[in-house]
Design a protein around this nucleic acid. Structure first.
Lengths: 238, 238
DNA sequence: CCTGTAAACTTGTATATACATGTTTCTCCT
DNA sequence: AGGAGAAACATGTATATACAAGTTTACAGG
């Protein structure tokens, strides 16, 4: 066994809920039953169930059991750390990525702040336009610390940079701070996107960290107003 | 003891991180040290630390310890399930709530879908305008199932409805599905808000559930583009 | 002095037990 | 028949132990 038990149990049930094999509002077996079924202890089951609850798959109700939530509305979110590529794949839409610029630059003042970088550091700058069904509606500006990413090619950027970083470079992407605001469209936005008369742009700013809490990427995703959607599941934190 | 140990430990350290008493990038004591210090077991400490990690306070690094993250940028989010009132209090801004409408209505078709209600059900409709520093910039439309909320007054709506629901009615608000999109401003938006030339509106749609997974509220929060900001902390879910 | 390895830390996983507390069911007494 | 209460079952909390696996430190040998 190389994979952990509680993660295996988590995926098993998460998949069943995702595919609809288990209907929303139906109940999961009790923790003791699950422990027997998976030949493990109740505590291990509880860890798996807690993960399912955190990610919006189930609701645990004391004394009663675990109820399956309706996850279908959540299924194509810009939520969490999902990348454009992973997202486009899951929906059926025809998409295309146009790489405008790949360059190693010295960070300007604003970028130094976002990336906690010094002016002597080197930073990859990648500019990509996302086309959905023939319309250029998203402009992605990515900045990586070069110390983490030695080389970068057009082919990689046309695919999924995240896949390259995680699978090929083995970078353990762990968490991000996300900010969503609306800004006036810049000249750059107007020149590379099909803005279609829209004067403003939804800007999703992401600051991405690795498992050891080191900051390594800053991303700005600039969406045409009508092509933006953010779906999330949130638990109340007292 | 009425409060749980691991929640007490969680709050103790969360407060210290929030106030800056513990600086970002500094390290927490080891789990064993914490267990001794709080006179509890390591497993209890681990539960508290896991909550801190989930909510963006710390990053746990295997073999090394727990690093405190910079939570200052996260401190005034529209994140999670925080209400307008709780938010306004934490920032210093001068705010006012204007109650436009409190009414019991029969749900129309669209609302029936959002609230999973039948046309025979009764629903509270509350319309409020939020004024920030003299400008009317947010329109909140709330719909509650009347079966959960027997009575509702103007005074309650001018304060925090959430406080009333949780403290007075004892409703255990647990989780929500959130959707953020941009729409064209409606005639209603134009008439009650100071739109200042903006033609579009950021709409935050919230579907709110109680601890027993019963759906009880649908909320639309309509923000003027320049007064909208969403900040979030997200962990990568493999 | 440098290097390699072992020891002493750290967090992660798995399991067991005991008891607390909320929910449902059934049974027995009125 | 109806209601009270006990029993059975659900999840929640707290604790203990053992071992796995990553990181740092210290020490011994070259």
């Amino acid at each position: 066994m190389k994979t952990n038990k509680f993660i295996a149990v988590y995926h098993e049930w998460a998949d069943m809920i995702n595919t609809g094999e288990i209907a929303p509002l139906s109940k999961l077996p009790s923790e003791n039953e699950l422990a027997q079924k998976h030949e493990t202890s109740r505590e291990t089951i509880r860890k798996a169930l807690q993960m399912l609850a955190e990610n919006g798959y189930i609701q645990k109700i004391r004394g009663k059991g675990s109820v399956v939530l309706d996850v279908s509305k959540l299924s194509f979110p810009v939520s969490g750390l999902v990348s454009f590529q992973e997202l486009a794949k899951s929906m059926g839409k025809e998409t295309r990525t146009i790489v405008h610029e790949i360059q190693v630059v010295k960070p300007d003042e604003r970028l130094q702040q976002s990336l906690h970088a010094k002016c002597s550091d080197e930073v990859w700058k990648v500019l990509r336009v996302r086309e959905i069904e023939g319309e250029k509606v998203i402009l992605d500006k990515d900045f990586f610390m070069r110390s983490f990413v030695p080389s970068l090619t057009k082919e990689i950027c046309e695919g999924s940079i995240y896949e390259y970083l995680e699978n090929d470079l083995g970078l353990p992407i762990s968490f991000a701070k996300k900010e969503i605001v609306v800004e006036e469209a810049t000249e750059e936005d107007k020149s590379v996107l099909d803005l279609d008369g829209f004067t403003h742009i939804v800007v999703v700013k992401n600051t991405v960290y690795l498992e050891d809490a080191s900051l390594f990427q800053y991303t700005e995703s600039r969406h045409r107003l009508d092509k933006f959607r953010f779906v999330d599941f949130a638990r109340r934190r007292s």
